[in-house]
């Protein structure tokens, strides 16, 4: 399925993917990211059971320590 992640189209192979699996594919730990799914912020506790569908919009912003 195709998901729009941070404005870019991503062809994600897993058709039943969750937010948690998407974050895992980006190697982002859930405790240091904020995720928006179709304009709604997703709570960390909901990552595991929020399913993605074709055409969904996801924004991911993760905290960075460097400077």
């Amino acid at each position: 399925m195709n998901i729009l992640v941070n404005g870019r189209t991503l062809d994600f192979p897993n058709e039943k993917a969750t937010i948690a699996e998407l974050l895992e594919s980006y190697q982002i730990q859930k405790k240091i990211a904020v995720v928006e799914h179709n304009k709604q912020i997703v709570k960390k506790t909901d990552y595991e059971h929020t399913k993605l569908a074709d055409g969904d919009h996801v924004e991911i912003v993760h905290f960075v320590g460097g400077g």
């Binding site: 941070n6 404005g7 904020v34 912020i41 924004e59 991911i60 912003v61 993760h62």
Partner: peptide
């Protein structure tokens, strides 16, 4: 909260007021 990648030319922002 703004995220941008100057090399990959990616941009994202999330309203976190909630």
């Amino acid at each position: 909260m703004v995220y941008a990648d100057v090399w990959g030319r990616e941009y994202s922002s999330i309203n976190i007021s909630g």
